[in-house]
């Protein structure tokens, strides 16, 4: 059987279709965010907010177990994302606030929130009795399980993707202007401070929802590698955005297919495919 036939057969499985759809939506959101993250020199933000998601999931799981919702509520109510998303949102806004109000650099501000979130995650996961099944596997949370994505998660990702993509495209011109030169944009009436809070808040929500599928450890790569590869090839911010989306989506679909065909961990296959594109871009860069 040829590789193409294999691929077609692979994509016929519902779980593969869900994985491809979730991966593609995450790739689009992360690429749209990633171009601003890379150009604002905030590459560490992906790591920081992904670990905030870990802290939030830990708190969320603990709240569900201790409130008794595990036994009573439906699948949606039992999802720790209800706590993880607001927690990461507060973390994202907190990082933006520290950047805004202190003279600390971005990586320092992110590093503080990163450490606190991991500590909270470990603390709250450790308080859950080992015999209680909370529906959250810590190893899956860390390394991702995109092939195991369920319809509930896919629905949540789709809702966030529609909101985030609409907002990012609507604000793209002002975000790009403020990214180029914050002061210049402000003289033209762009509310760049508000946009920065919005960008951090959106990144927090997108990363938290995505990290539960892609994995916390690999999340930052989604945000950074497609945008970085696109930057090497692009001559304009618009083409960088378009290339980042194309690279993100195509490497995700290729990574999902390769992981199935060669029995590889899916998250690793996606990130390594992205890295391969980055290496090609770096070698073909025009000087």
């Amino acid at each position: 059987m040829s590789g193409l036939e294999d691929l077609i057969q692979v994509l016929a499985f519902p779980f593969m279709q869900r994985a491809a759809a979730a991966g593609a939506m995450i790739a689009v959101m992360c690429a749209l965010l990633g171009v601003f993250v890379v150009q604002r020199r905030l590459s560490f933000l992906g790591d920081g907010l992904a670990h905030a998601a870990f802290g939030g999931m830990g708190i969320g799981a603990f709240v569900i177990v201790s409130s008794g919702a595990l036994a009573q509520g439906g699948a949606l109510l039992r999802n720790p994302l209800w706590v993880a998303v607001p927690f990461a949102l507060l973390t994202g806004l907190g990082i933006a606030w520290v950047r805004d109000r202190t003279e600390l650099s971005s990586d320092t501000a992110i590093g503080v929130f990163f450490a606190v979130s991991v500590a909270l995650g470990v603390l709250f996961f450790s308080r859950i009795p080992p015999d209680v099944n909370i529906g959250v596997n810590v190893m899956d949370l860390l390394f991702g399980s995109i092939l195991a994505v369920r319809t509930t998660e896919l629905t949540i990702i789709a809702v966030v993707a529609v909101i985030a993509t609409t907002l990012l495209l609507a604000l793209w011109g002002r975000l790009a202007y403020a990214t180029f030169d914050d002061e210049l944009a402000r003289t033209d009436g762009v509310r760049s401070r508000l946009l920065e809070y919005l960008l951090f808040g959106l990144a927090a929500v997108v990363i938290t929802v995505s990290a539960t599928v892609v994995g916390i450890i690999l999340m930052a790569a989604y945000l950074v590698i497609p945008a970085a590869a696109a930057r090497i090839w692009a001559r304009s911010m618009a083409s960088m955005t378009l290339f980042a989306v194309l690279i993100g989506v195509s490497t995700t679909l290729a990574g999902v297919a390769l992981s199935y065909l060669f029995d590889l961990p899916t998250g690793s296959a996606i990130i390594l495919t992205q890295a391969l594109v980055f290496v090609v871009a770096a070698f073909t860069q025009r000087r």
Partner: peptide, 23 residues
């Protein structure tokens, strides 16, 4: 000025006309 930002001269001049970055 940030030299890593991908932009052409015409795009920068257009920001003076539309007060946002042109796609």
């Amino acid at each position: 000025f940030d030299r890593t930002f991908p932009a052409t001269a015409v795009e920068l001049v257009v920001t003076g006309l539309r007060r946002s970055w042109p796609a």
